[in-house]
């Protein structure tokens, strides 16, 4: 399996706080990985480092062998890394369809100036984009909401739309930030199914930050555990479940019990 994403000694400090400390981690082509850890362990910060929201204080992050430093958030998306947000960030006033259309700009065939001329090439391009956006919405059962403003969608649908929007950028790696937050057990089962479907159908790798042990243990092939910004363990779900360091990190947190249950 070819390596896709690689973090080498990735570190970021905010003032005196080292939020992520010398983390080594890799995601391979087609893999479904999980990143877990207690609250404030630095999981989302790792996402922000990968996606260029923050620049690492030291260390190196590369994607497909290419150093991501200095590419900017939009440049990194262009290479094929898409993400969702812990607190969903849709374009609230735009229609569901337009949320997806906006994400199709990376693969637009005509230059912006064509919007003024509106020649055949422009119209074909627009039609293709709308068709593709509609197709994506249908796959994820969002077609019936097409013209509704995104902010009017129910919570679960908003989460799905955020994933659809990511897929419209044609990513090779999908980063999901706590997709199960606020979901009940039935919805979580549904989510696990969805994540696996996405990976299969769109042929991509997924890195998951998650609090819900059920979801992480239920679908990830490899899991890394962060605590206070340091990677304390990495391995298969079975290895992680029994790792004494992991259990210790989670003890005293209510997650300790949820870890024991699985």
């Amino acid at each position: 399996m070819a390596e896709l994403l690689r973090l080498e000694q990735a570190t970021i400090r905010f003032g005196g706080l080292t939020a992520v400390n010398a983390v080594d981690f890799a995601v391979n082509e087609g893999e479904l990985c999980g990143l877990i850890g207690p609250n404030g362990a630095g999981k989302t910060t790792v996402f922000n480092l990968i996606t260029g929201v923050y620049a690492p204080t030291s260390g190196r992050i590369s994607f497909g062998g290419r150093d991501l430093r200095g590419l900017g958030v939009d440049g990194i998306v262009g290479l094929g890394i898409a993400r969702t947000f812990q607190n969903i960030r849709l374009f609230g006033s735009l229609s569901v369809l337009d949320n997806v259309r906006a994400a199709c700009n990376l693969h637009r065939a005509t230059a912006p100036g064509h919007a003024l001329l509106r020649l055949g090439a422009f119209r074909r391009d627009e039609a293709a984009i709308v068709a593709r956006a509609n197709e994506l919405l249908e796959i994820f059962n969002l077609g019936r909401f097409r013209d509704a403003p995104a902010r009017s969608l129910p919570y679960g649908e908003q989460r799905r739309l955020e994933i659809v929007r990511c897929l419209a950028t044609r990513p090779r790696l999908l980063l999901l930030d706590e997709p199960a937050a606020g979901m009940n057990p039935t919805e979580k089962t549904e989510l696990i199914r969805l994540i696996q479907q996405v990976r299969r159908q769109f042929n991509l790798s997924i890195l998951l930050v998650e609090h819900s042990m059920r979801v992480v243990m239920g679908c990830c092939e490899r899991i890394a555990v962060l605590d206070y910004g340091v990677k304390i363990a990495e391995g298969t779900p079975d290895q992680i479940r029994t790792d004494p360091k992991v259990i210790e990190a989670y003890l005293g947190e209510d997650h300790g019990s949820s870890l024991a249950h699985h």
């Binding site: 996606t51 929201v53 900017g72 958030v73 939009d74 998306v77 262009g78 898409a82 993400r83 947000f85 960030r89 849709l90 374009f91 609230g92 006033s93 735009l94 337009d98 949320n99 259309r101 906006a102 994400a103 199709c104 700009n105 990376l106 637009r108 912006p112 919007a115 422009f122 391009d125 627009e126 984009i129 929007r165 990511c166 419209a168 950028t169």
Partner: peptide
């Protein structure tokens, strides 16, 4: 236009706009 959706996306949420490659 699809290009023009980017103006609206920027208005609604700049961080999300950058996160979809705009």
């Amino acid at each position: 236009s699809t290009y023009g959706r980017g103006f609206l996306a920027t208005r609604d949420d700049e961080i999300a706009a950058a996160a979809v490659g705009l």
